[in-house]
Design a protein around this nucleic acid. Structure first.
Lengths: 148, 148
DNA sequence: CGGATATCAGACCTACTGACATTG
DNA sequence: CCAATGTCAGTATGTCTGATATCC
């Protein structure tokens, strides 16, 4: 197969595989037992990982509009998982950071959220395949964050 | 790292990487020039790839409800990309299949849809990394379709 | 005044659940 | 009578665009 075809085929396979796994994860998740959505917990994780930030910065990093990110952040804030304070240096900004409650939650909930995926992976994959996925995740992150 | 931690970490990295790439693809797509959505074209592709089928079968394969899939299929049908006929053997079923128009479209549009992704991959990745992604896609498909 | 930040309002896409008629 | 298919109706989530006010 030619290199250009290889890339095109991989791009197509990757997007459809992602869509299927995403749908399967939704099908396997039990919304009743968890008050927070996938997106909300992902953003909580990113705030914890990268430290205090602003809605606009988060929106840029995740490639969504400020308004969309503000919605997600508002839920986390209403539930007391994150807090917001005006930036003393630039009063347009509101700096958001994780609270004790948010930090405590992040150590217990994500495990439950990915329970089905982790269990299925453990059942289905050998350690080499697991490593392939981990490297793939790193490559995908690199692609997603690439500046043109 | 212990094997169980390895799996949990990979599951977490994979889901967040997928979410980021998905968001980036949405940000890079230009909806103005294309009247069909991502999901609709994905389903069209699957119908072409796997041949004539029913709404319920498609819904099972993609892990969504019949009603959700019916919505997607209805748009494709209204635009003449697919057709539907009652199954003579089982009159509950409606067999859907691709039309000439749908087939013609599928050879031109998907390339445009994944244009940014393919171009970025070609720029960023060497051939080994490309192969890692292709294998990862195959593994992800296996996980998504695994029966418990 | 131009640029960035935040927020309000309205819309759309893609799922979901529940209820129903038809057929096997 | 029970199971499967398809469809109608209503709802939720997460995104979008457009408009507005505030601040640098």
């Amino acid at each position: 197969m030619e290199a250009r075809d290889q890339v095109a085929k991989t791009a197509a396979e990757l997007t459809s595989a992602m869509a299927r796994l995403r749908a399967r994860l939704r099908a396997e998740s039990e919304p009743r037992v968890m008050p927070w959505t996938w997106s909300q917990l992902t953003i909580l994780g990113r705030i914890i990982e990268n430290g205090p930030t602003t809605v606009s910065d988060l929106a840029r990093a995740e490639h969504v509009r400020r308004q969309s990110m503000a919605e997600t952040v508002a839920v986390l804030r209403a539930d007391g998982l994150i807090g917001a304070e005006p930036d003393p240096d630039d009063r347009r900004k509101a700096v958001i950071s994780v609270t004790e409650k948010g930090l405590a939650l992040s150590t217990t909930i994500p495990a439950a959220r990915e329970k089905w995926l982790a269990a299925t992976m453990a059942e289905l994959l050998d350690s080499r395949e697991c490593e392939v996925l981990l490297e793939a995740a790193s490559i995908v992150n690199r692609i997603a964050q690439h500046k043109d």
